[in-house]
């Protein structure tokens, strides 16, 4: 062998090969993988519950004046998940109202009952669609932002730095985001309801329902109880989104790829949590006959 190649070969063999026991790929059967997935999903659910519990403890510290965070952080988050979310919430809610009215009108016209488009849009928006669509928008927008921000802080050792300066990262990062989103969600929901009803009204006026008539019909159909159901749910959905986003951020690994994964998981978890909670509320409201 030529000398120059032998030199390189010696270099390559100078350090013994690392045994890869730690990083062996899974060689599980289909059933094994299913079992592993089940165990992991259950562990994920337990972790969500645990994080929620920690959030409650942190809130107790906040209300007893023992939790500290920067007020600037809180106001900034309030702006990000409030005012800055208005354009996208407006667009989606308007279109949802529009679509509902269109679809409803096509069916109801057969019965000469197209005035009930107002009832359909009004009730659907305030009871379900306003709050659910807002929650899904906020999951993708704010939940993802929380996860990405906290995740990169973790990857950059910023959370460790908070700890070694005696700040509780939970109080410092999760609390302002949770409180801001829980405060803003009801407002966004009310706004979304109004914009959605306006969308329906626009379609209504095109298909020959006068605006005044549409408005009166909506007011008659949507009572205060129905209207407050959506707003009531929005508080819980907001908390679920904030907890999912912050939890995935806090649990992110230390590389940029893992921050990306954490963001994806945050959005998936937030949307799942919102839909599961909404189903639970649907059952509860039916049982309570509201």
């Amino acid at each position: 062998m030529p000398d120059n190649l032998r030199g390189l070969l010696e270099l390559a063999l100078a350090v013994p090969e690392e045994s890869q026991d730690q990083n062996k790929p899974d060689t599980l059967s289909a059933i094994g993988r299913l079992g592993k997935l089940t165990v992991e999903t259950w562990a994920g659910f337990l972790a969500f519950l645990k994080f929620t519990g920690q959030t409650v403890l942190s809130l107790i510290r906040f209300f007893t004046g023992r939790a500290r965070f920067r007020s600037a952080d809180f106001w900034m988050t309030l702006q990000q998940c409030g005012v800055q979310a208005l354009p996208i919430v407006s667009l989606i809610s308007f279109l949802i109202g529009l679509i509902f009215a269109f679809v409803g009108n096509v069916q109801l016209t057969h019965f000469g009952a197209n005035i009930f488009v107002a009832d359909l849009v009004g009730i659907a928006m305030v009871r379900e669609m306003g709050v659910v669509m807002t929650s899904i928008i906020m999951s993708g927008r704010t939940g993802a932002a929380f996860a990405a921000h906290i995740g990169s802080m973790k990857a950059n050792e910023e959370i460790d730095a908070l700890r070694t300066f005696g700040f509780d990262p939970f109080d410092f990062l999760v609390l302002p985001r949770l409180i801001a989103l829980v405060l803003m969600m009801p407002l966004l929901t009310v706004y979304s309801n109004v914009v959605g009803i306006f969308g329906g009204m626009v379609v209504g006026s095109f298909v020959g329902i006068p605006v005044q008539l549409y408005w009166n019909e909506t007011i008659a159909a949507v009572d205060l109880t129905t209207a407050s159901l959506g707003v009531f749910k929005s508080v819980f959905f907001g908390a679920a989104i904030a907890i999912s986003g912050c939890m995935m951020g806090m649990k992110a690994g230390n590389s940029s790829a893992e921050v990306g994964e954490a963001t994806t998981r945050a959005v998936v978890t937030a949307i799942t949590a919102v839909i599961v909670l909404d189903s639970a509320f649907a059952v509860i409201f039916t049982l309570l006959d509201i």
Binding site: E157, D160, L162
Partner: peptide, 25 residues
């Protein structure tokens, strides 16, 4: 912990704060 001062490998400055705020916090 109050007696410790820790400097991290990457600096680990809080990225949403200015250098001044990083020290004043």
């Amino acid at each position: 912990i109050r007696r410790f001062g820790v400097m991290y490998q990457s600096g680990a400055l809080w990225s949403s704060l200015t250098l001044g705020e990083n020290i004043s916090m």
